[in-house]
Write a protein that binds this DNA or RNA. Structure first.
Length: 226
DNA sequence: ACCCAGGGTCATA
DNA sequence: TATGACCATGGG
């Protein structure tokens, strides 16, 4: 995987889809809430859950910690896994307040902050990195299922790398540029949405000029990406 | 009726 | 370390 391949892919995506302006939220705290709620969940469902919190004026750590679990779960219902997410969100908010909130956490260097976030039950690698990049604006390249699949199908990696192996391999090729990482991850997600099962054809993929599998029969095992 | 979505934890081998 | 079960709503 070379710097050139990564930049060529990025520029093709940016040219095709334009800037995505992530993360869609009004505050860093809302980014973090969204990062937990969007775990294996469509973003439209997360929006409903967040709207429920806003509607009841509960989109803050103190209100969430004080809320009854069954009430919180009810507000989170549209985002799926609502019982587990109620516990996770509350865990996170309790920890967040104990740490002194956003300002206090912002003083930590990136690696320390990453370890701290990962220590919270319910916050895994991708959720932590979403928070690091989109809430704390640290140059961390977020890896999700799309990223692994895309770079694997483009022949950049084998696909067997674990989370940090893949993340570090990418970061090693790019400048630690928050704006670049922000847009790159958002564009990978945007690209995946363009290849839902309605249009599973490699012929429509905007990355075909970079794809070794271009022209091969369309894949139907998952959302089609060449 | 089926597949999937901007994952993570826990138990098991 | 590597799988598998589990969590659950909503759209295509």
């Amino acid at each position: 995987m070379t710097r050139r391949q990564l930049l060529a892919t990025y520029h093709s995506l940016l040219l095709s889809f334009g800037a995505q302006h992530w993360w869609p939220a009004d505050s860093p705290f809302e980014v973090m809430v969204g990062a937990i709620l969007t775990q294996n969940t469509a973003w439209t469902n997360v929006e409903r859950a967040i709207a429920n919190l806003v509607e009841r004026d509960k989109l803050d750590a103190t209100s969430i910690v004080r809320a009854r679990n069954d009430h919180l779960a009810g507000w989170l219902r549209p985002s799926g896994y609502f019982n587990i997410k109620a516990v996770r969100l509350k865990n996170f908010c309790r920890w967040y307040l104990e740490q002194g909130g956003f300002r206090a956490l912002s003083r930590l260097p990136t690696q320390s902050l990453r370890r701290a976030l990962l220590s919270v039950n319910g916050v895994g690698h991708e959720t932590a990195d979403d928070m690091l990049l989109y809430a704390f604006e640290r140059p961390v390249f977020v890896i999700d299922a799309y990223t692994r699949r895309l770079f694997s199908r483009l022949g950049f990696v084998t696909g067997n790398e674990n989370y940090d192996e893949l993340r570090l391999a990418i970061e090693a090729q790019l400048d630690p540029d928050v704006a670049l990482y922000n847009e790159y991850h958002a564009l990978i997600v945007r690209h995946a949405k363009a290849h839902c099962r309605v249009k599973p054809h490699c012929t429509e993929c905007v990355l075909n000029h970079l794809c070794p599998a271009a022209g091969a029969p369309a894949r139907r095992d998952q959302a089609g990406i060449c």
